[in-house]
Amino acid sequence: MEATTPKYTFKDFASDQEVRWCPGCDDYVILRAMQKALPEMGVRKENVVFISGIGCSSRFPYYMDTYGMHGIHGRAPAIASGVKLANPDLSVWVITGDGDSMAIGGNHFIHVLRRNIDLNMILFNNRIYGLTKGQFSPTSTVGQKTKSSPYGNTQPPFLAGELAIGAQARFFARAAGNTPKEMTELFIAAEAFKGTTLIEVLQNCVIFNDGCYTSFTDKNVREDKQLHVRHGEPMIFGKDRDKGLVLNGLKLEVVTVGENGITEADILVHDAHEQDPTLHQMLVRLEYPLVTGIIRSFQDVTLEERKDAQTRHVKANSPYAKTDDLFFSGETYEVK
Protein backbone atom coordinates (compact mmCIF):
# COMPACT_ATOMS: atom_id res chain seq x y z
CA MET A 1 0.00 0.00 0.00
CA GLU A 2 2.84 2.38 0.88
CA ALA A 3 4.08 2.40 -2.70
CA THR A 4 0.82 3.80 -4.03
CA THR A 5 0.06 6.18 -1.19
CA PRO A 6 0.36 9.79 -2.29
CA LYS A 7 2.81 12.07 -0.50
CA TYR A 8 0.57 13.98 1.87
CA THR A 9 1.32 16.95 4.08
CA PHE A 10 -0.59 17.91 7.20
CA LYS A 11 -2.68 20.31 5.13
CA ASP A 12 -4.22 17.41 3.22
CA PHE A 13 -5.88 16.31 6.43
CA ALA A 14 -7.26 19.68 7.52
CA SER A 15 -10.95 20.22 6.64
CA ASP A 16 -12.40 23.60 5.64
CA GLN A 17 -14.25 23.92 8.94
CA GLU A 18 -13.24 26.61 11.40
CA VAL A 19 -11.85 25.09 14.58
CA ARG A 20 -13.95 26.19 17.53
CA TRP A 21 -12.17 25.07 20.67
CA CYS A 22 -11.33 27.64 23.33
CA PRO A 23 -8.15 29.60 22.64
CA GLY A 24 -5.21 27.92 24.35
CA CYS A 25 -6.83 24.49 24.56
CA ASP A 26 -4.54 21.47 24.24
CA ASP A 27 -7.02 20.06 21.72
CA TYR A 28 -5.39 22.24 19.07
CA VAL A 29 -2.07 20.59 19.83
CA ILE A 30 -3.55 17.12 19.53
CA LEU A 31 -5.28 18.02 16.25
CA ARG A 32 -2.07 19.31 14.72
CA ALA A 33 -0.10 16.30 16.02
CA MET A 34 -2.59 14.03 14.29
CA GLN A 35 -2.52 15.99 11.04
CA LYS A 36 1.24 15.67 11.09
CA ALA A 37 1.18 11.97 11.95
CA LEU A 38 -1.19 10.86 9.21
CA PRO A 39 1.14 11.58 6.25
CA GLU A 40 3.72 9.37 7.95
CA MET A 41 1.44 6.36 8.37
CA GLY A 42 1.33 5.22 4.77
CA VAL A 43 -2.47 5.18 4.65
CA ARG A 44 -4.57 6.72 1.92
CA LYS A 45 -6.77 9.46 3.24
CA GLU A 46 -9.98 7.97 1.83
CA ASN A 47 -9.31 4.97 4.06
CA VAL A 48 -9.13 7.00 7.25
CA VAL A 49 -12.21 7.27 9.46
CA PHE A 50 -12.57 9.30 12.65
CA ILE A 51 -15.45 8.45 14.96
CA SER A 52 -16.27 10.45 18.05
CA GLY A 53 -18.87 10.63 20.77
CA ILE A 54 -19.96 13.82 22.48
CA GLY A 55 -17.89 16.38 24.31
CA CYS A 56 -15.30 19.01 23.41
CA SER A 57 -12.89 16.41 22.05
CA SER A 58 -15.58 14.85 19.95
CA ARG A 59 -15.70 17.81 17.58
CA PHE A 60 -12.38 16.52 16.29
CA PRO A 61 -13.71 14.62 13.20
CA TYR A 62 -15.23 17.82 11.79
CA TYR A 63 -11.75 19.27 11.50
CA MET A 64 -10.20 16.33 9.69
CA ASP A 65 -10.53 16.04 5.92
CA THR A 66 -11.17 12.30 6.11
CA TYR A 67 -14.32 10.27 6.56
CA GLY A 68 -15.83 10.93 9.95
CA MET A 69 -18.80 10.64 12.21
CA HIS A 70 -19.70 12.74 15.20
CA GLY A 71 -21.77 10.14 17.01
CA ILE A 72 -23.65 10.12 20.27
CA HIS A 73 -22.38 10.30 23.81
CA GLY A 74 -20.16 7.39 24.78
CA ARG A 75 -20.88 5.18 21.78
CA ALA A 76 -17.94 5.92 19.49
CA PRO A 77 -16.13 2.62 20.24
CA ALA A 78 -19.25 0.68 19.23
CA ILE A 79 -19.79 2.72 16.06
CA ALA A 80 -16.12 2.34 15.19
CA SER A 81 -16.30 -1.42 15.82
CA GLY A 82 -19.08 -1.62 13.23
CA VAL A 83 -17.07 0.42 10.73
CA LYS A 84 -13.99 -1.75 11.16
CA LEU A 85 -15.86 -5.06 11.01
CA ALA A 86 -17.70 -3.90 7.91
CA ASN A 87 -14.48 -2.91 6.17
CA PRO A 88 -11.25 -4.14 7.81
CA ASP A 89 -9.13 -2.21 5.26
CA LEU A 90 -9.98 1.10 6.92
CA SER A 91 -7.83 2.93 9.43
CA VAL A 92 -10.32 3.63 12.18
CA TRP A 93 -9.82 6.15 14.98
CA VAL A 94 -11.96 6.85 18.00
CA ILE A 95 -11.76 10.28 19.56
CA THR A 96 -13.13 10.40 23.08
CA GLY A 97 -12.92 12.19 26.40
CA ASP A 98 -12.84 11.08 30.04
CA GLY A 99 -16.59 11.45 30.51
CA ASP A 100 -17.44 10.05 27.10
CA SER A 101 -15.27 6.95 27.49
CA MET A 102 -15.36 6.14 31.17
CA ALA A 103 -18.75 7.41 32.36
CA ILE A 104 -21.54 7.16 29.82
CA GLY A 105 -19.52 5.00 27.46
CA GLY A 106 -17.74 2.84 30.03
CA ASN A 107 -19.30 -0.34 28.77
CA HIS A 108 -18.22 0.12 25.16
CA PHE A 109 -14.77 1.29 26.28
CA ILE A 110 -13.99 -1.90 28.18
CA HIS A 111 -15.51 -4.22 25.61
CA VAL A 112 -13.71 -2.82 22.61
CA LEU A 113 -10.45 -3.31 24.49
CA ARG A 114 -11.40 -6.85 25.49
CA ARG A 115 -12.21 -7.79 21.90
CA ASN A 116 -9.03 -6.31 20.47
CA ILE A 117 -10.49 -4.91 17.25
CA ASP A 118 -7.79 -3.23 15.17
CA LEU A 119 -8.67 0.39 15.82
CA ASN A 120 -7.09 3.31 17.66
CA MET A 121 -8.55 5.37 20.48
CA ILE A 122 -7.32 8.71 21.63
CA LEU A 123 -8.62 9.68 25.04
CA PHE A 124 -8.52 13.40 25.80
CA ASN A 125 -8.40 13.30 29.58
CA ASN A 126 -8.92 16.74 31.15
CA ARG A 127 -10.53 15.42 34.34
CA ILE A 128 -13.61 17.59 33.85
CA TYR A 129 -16.78 17.95 31.80
CA GLY A 130 -16.00 20.90 29.56
CA LEU A 131 -18.86 21.04 27.06
CA THR A 132 -21.49 20.90 29.82
CA LYS A 133 -19.55 23.62 31.60
CA GLY A 134 -17.59 22.20 34.43
CA GLN A 135 -18.92 19.17 36.31
CA PHE A 136 -16.56 16.58 37.82
CA SER A 137 -15.78 13.58 35.63
CA PRO A 138 -14.79 9.97 36.40
CA THR A 139 -11.15 11.06 36.42
CA SER A 140 -11.59 14.14 38.63
CA THR A 141 -9.63 13.90 41.86
CA VAL A 142 -11.21 13.50 45.27
CA GLY A 143 -11.78 16.92 46.74
CA GLN A 144 -11.79 18.66 43.34
CA LYS A 145 -14.20 21.58 43.42
CA THR A 146 -16.40 21.78 40.37
CA LYS A 147 -19.86 23.13 39.60
CA SER A 148 -21.44 19.85 40.64
CA SER A 149 -19.10 19.37 43.59
CA PRO A 150 -18.94 22.81 45.20
CA TYR A 151 -17.65 21.29 48.45
CA GLY A 152 -15.22 18.96 46.71
CA ASN A 153 -15.62 15.77 44.69
CA THR A 154 -16.37 12.71 46.83
CA GLN A 155 -16.01 10.07 44.07
CA PRO A 156 -12.61 8.37 43.70
CA PRO A 157 -11.30 8.56 40.14
CA PHE A 158 -10.51 5.95 37.52
CA LEU A 159 -7.01 5.76 36.16
CA ALA A 160 -7.63 5.33 32.44
CA GLY A 161 -4.65 3.03 31.92
CA GLU A 162 -5.47 0.87 34.91
CA LEU A 163 -9.04 0.41 33.73
CA ALA A 164 -7.93 -0.22 30.15
CA ILE A 165 -5.30 -2.81 31.02
CA GLY A 166 -7.77 -4.38 33.43
CA ALA A 167 -10.04 -4.71 30.40
CA GLN A 168 -7.20 -6.49 28.57
CA ALA A 169 -5.86 -3.54 26.56
CA ARG A 170 -2.93 -4.80 24.52
CA PHE A 171 -1.63 -1.31 23.77
CA PHE A 172 -1.64 1.62 26.16
CA ALA A 173 0.35 4.83 25.83
CA ARG A 174 0.24 8.15 27.58
CA ALA A 175 1.33 11.62 26.53
CA ALA A 176 1.14 15.08 28.00
CA GLY A 177 -1.02 17.48 25.99
CA ASN A 178 1.84 19.90 25.50
CA THR A 179 4.16 17.41 23.78
CA PRO A 180 3.14 17.38 20.10
CA LYS A 181 6.21 15.49 18.89
CA GLU A 182 5.67 12.65 21.33
CA MET A 183 2.01 12.50 20.38
CA THR A 184 2.78 12.31 16.66
CA GLU A 185 5.18 9.49 17.38
CA LEU A 186 2.60 7.62 19.49
CA PHE A 187 -0.13 8.04 16.87
CA ILE A 188 2.14 6.54 14.22
CA ALA A 189 3.05 3.66 16.54
CA ALA A 190 -0.63 3.06 17.32
CA GLU A 191 -1.52 2.82 13.63
CA ALA A 192 1.31 0.34 13.07
CA PHE A 193 0.07 -1.83 15.95
CA LYS A 194 -2.49 -4.51 15.07
CA GLY A 195 -5.20 -4.46 17.71
CA THR A 196 -7.03 -1.91 19.82
CA THR A 197 -4.74 0.88 20.97
CA LEU A 198 -5.47 3.46 23.62
CA ILE A 199 -3.53 6.69 23.88
CA GLU A 200 -4.34 8.80 26.88
CA VAL A 201 -3.52 12.46 26.41
CA LEU A 202 -3.32 14.48 29.61
CA GLN A 203 -5.09 17.49 28.24
CA ASN A 204 -5.40 20.81 29.95
CA CYS A 205 -8.79 22.52 30.00
CA VAL A 206 -8.00 26.22 30.14
CA ILE A 207 -11.48 27.19 31.24
CA PHE A 208 -12.72 24.67 33.79
CA ASN A 209 -9.69 22.80 35.05
CA ASP A 210 -6.70 24.94 34.15
CA GLY A 211 -3.38 23.70 35.41
CA CYS A 212 -4.59 20.28 36.51
CA TYR A 213 -1.45 18.66 35.12
CA THR A 214 0.99 21.56 35.48
CA SER A 215 2.92 19.92 38.28
CA PHE A 216 4.09 17.19 35.86
CA THR A 217 3.84 18.87 32.50
CA ASP A 218 5.25 22.33 32.97
CA LYS A 219 8.37 22.80 30.85
CA ASN A 220 10.46 23.59 33.90
CA VAL A 221 9.59 20.42 35.80
CA ARG A 222 8.63 17.82 33.27
CA GLU A 223 12.05 16.23 32.82
CA ASP A 224 12.24 15.67 36.55
CA LYS A 225 8.62 14.59 36.97
CA GLN A 226 8.00 12.48 33.88
CA LEU A 227 9.52 9.20 32.83
CA HIS A 228 9.18 8.67 29.09
CA VAL A 229 9.49 4.92 28.60
CA ARG A 230 10.77 3.15 25.50
CA HIS A 231 10.72 -0.59 24.94
CA GLY A 232 14.14 -2.14 25.57
CA GLU A 233 15.59 0.91 27.27
CA PRO A 234 16.32 1.41 30.97
CA MET A 235 13.70 3.49 32.75
CA ILE A 236 15.82 6.54 33.48
CA PHE A 237 14.56 10.10 33.88
CA GLY A 238 15.48 13.49 35.32
CA LYS A 239 17.19 16.56 33.95
CA ASP A 240 20.53 14.94 34.72
CA ARG A 241 19.37 11.47 33.58
CA ASP A 242 20.33 10.15 36.98
CA LYS A 243 17.00 8.90 38.33
CA GLY A 244 15.68 5.46 37.59
CA LEU A 245 13.21 2.76 38.60
CA VAL A 246 14.05 -0.46 40.38
CA LEU A 247 11.80 -3.15 41.75
CA ASN A 248 11.86 -3.38 45.52
CA GLY A 249 9.79 -6.39 46.52
CA LEU A 250 6.40 -5.81 44.90
CA LYS A 251 6.86 -2.07 44.57
CA LEU A 252 8.60 0.24 42.14
CA GLU A 253 11.12 2.51 43.73
CA VAL A 254 12.89 5.61 42.44
CA VAL A 255 16.65 5.48 42.89
CA THR A 256 19.53 7.73 41.96
CA VAL A 257 22.27 6.38 39.77
CA GLY A 258 25.61 6.81 41.55
CA GLU A 259 24.09 6.75 45.01
CA ASN A 260 24.20 3.74 47.36
CA GLY A 261 26.13 1.78 44.79
CA ILE A 262 23.38 1.98 42.14
CA THR A 263 24.60 1.80 38.58
CA GLU A 264 22.69 2.09 35.34
CA ALA A 265 22.78 -1.70 35.07
CA ASP A 266 20.52 -1.91 38.14
CA ILE A 267 17.75 0.11 36.49
CA LEU A 268 14.74 -1.80 35.15
CA VAL A 269 14.61 -2.15 31.38
CA HIS A 270 11.17 -1.44 29.96
CA ASP A 271 9.47 -4.43 28.33
CA ALA A 272 6.31 -3.13 26.66
CA HIS A 273 5.86 -6.41 24.79
CA GLU A 274 5.43 -8.57 27.91
CA GLN A 275 2.06 -10.35 28.01
CA ASP A 276 1.84 -10.23 31.82
CA PRO A 277 0.51 -6.75 32.60
CA THR A 278 1.66 -6.59 36.22
CA LEU A 279 4.57 -4.25 35.69
CA HIS A 280 2.62 -2.18 33.15
CA GLN A 281 -0.10 -1.64 35.73
CA MET A 282 2.53 -0.51 38.25
CA LEU A 283 3.90 1.98 35.74
CA VAL A 284 0.40 3.31 35.03
CA ARG A 285 -0.27 3.81 38.74
CA LEU A 286 2.98 5.51 39.51
CA GLU A 287 2.49 9.10 40.68
CA TYR A 288 6.16 10.04 40.73
CA PRO A 289 7.48 9.95 38.14
CA LEU A 290 4.46 10.19 35.84
CA VAL A 291 5.07 7.60 33.16
CA THR A 292 4.52 8.60 29.52
CA GLY A 293 5.23 6.80 26.24
CA ILE A 294 4.17 3.32 25.20
CA ILE A 295 3.63 1.52 28.49
CA ARG A 296 2.15 -1.64 27.02
CA SER A 297 2.34 -3.03 23.50
CA PHE A 298 1.58 -6.73 23.52
CA GLN A 299 0.82 -8.12 20.07
CA ASP A 300 -2.16 -10.49 20.17
CA VAL A 301 -4.69 -12.00 17.76
CA THR A 302 -7.30 -9.44 16.70
CA LEU A 303 -11.04 -9.99 16.58
CA GLU A 304 -11.03 -9.54 12.80
CA GLU A 305 -8.39 -12.25 12.44
CA ARG A 306 -10.47 -14.66 14.50
CA LYS A 307 -13.64 -13.81 12.60
CA ASP A 308 -11.90 -13.99 9.27
CA ALA A 309 -10.45 -17.42 9.96
CA GLN A 310 -13.86 -18.66 11.05
CA THR A 311 -15.58 -17.25 7.97
CA ARG A 312 -13.03 -18.82 5.64
CA HIS A 313 -13.48 -22.17 7.35
CA VAL A 314 -17.29 -21.98 7.19
CA LYS A 315 -17.24 -20.89 3.54
CA ALA A 316 -14.92 -23.72 2.57
CA ASN A 317 -17.22 -26.28 4.17
CA SER A 318 -20.60 -24.81 3.30
CA PRO A 319 -23.06 -26.49 0.97
CA TYR A 320 -24.63 -23.09 0.23
CA ALA A 321 -23.31 -20.75 -2.43
CA LYS A 322 -26.48 -18.66 -2.82
CA THR A 323 -29.43 -18.04 -0.56
CA ASP A 324 -31.61 -20.16 -2.86
CA ASP A 325 -29.47 -23.17 -1.94
CA LEU A 326 -30.43 -22.59 1.68
CA PHE A 327 -34.09 -21.81 1.06
CA PHE A 328 -34.64 -24.96 -0.99
CA SER A 329 -32.51 -27.19 1.27
CA GLY A 330 -33.75 -29.66 3.86
CA GLU A 331 -37.39 -30.42 4.44
CA THR A 332 -39.30 -28.92 1.56
CA TYR A 333 -42.37 -30.35 -0.12
CA GLU A 334 -44.27 -29.84 -3.34
CA VAL A 335 -47.85 -28.74 -3.67
CA LYS A 336 -49.16 -29.71 -7.09
Binding site: V49, I51, Y67, M69, G71, I72, R75, A78, I79, A80, S81, G82, V83, K84, L85, A86, N87, L90, N107, H108, H111
Partner: peptide, 16 residues
Amino acid sequence: EDEIAGITSAIGASFA
Protein backbone atom coordinates in the same frame (compact mmCIF):
# COMPACT_ATOMS: atom_id res chain seq x y z
CA GLU B 1 -22.15 -5.62 24.95
CA ASP B 2 -25.59 -4.02 25.13
CA GLU B 3 -28.57 -2.88 23.07
CA ILE B 4 -26.98 0.47 22.38
CA ALA B 5 -23.81 -1.09 21.01
CA GLY B 6 -26.03 -3.38 18.95
CA ILE B 7 -27.52 -0.46 17.07
CA THR B 8 -24.46 1.81 17.08
CA SER B 9 -22.21 -0.92 15.66
CA ALA B 10 -24.85 -1.35 12.95
CA ILE B 11 -24.74 2.40 12.29
CA GLY B 12 -20.97 2.13 11.92
CA ALA B 13 -21.33 -0.81 9.53
CA SER B 14 -23.90 1.11 7.53
CA PHE B 15 -21.59 4.12 7.32
CA ALA B 16 -18.97 1.72 5.93
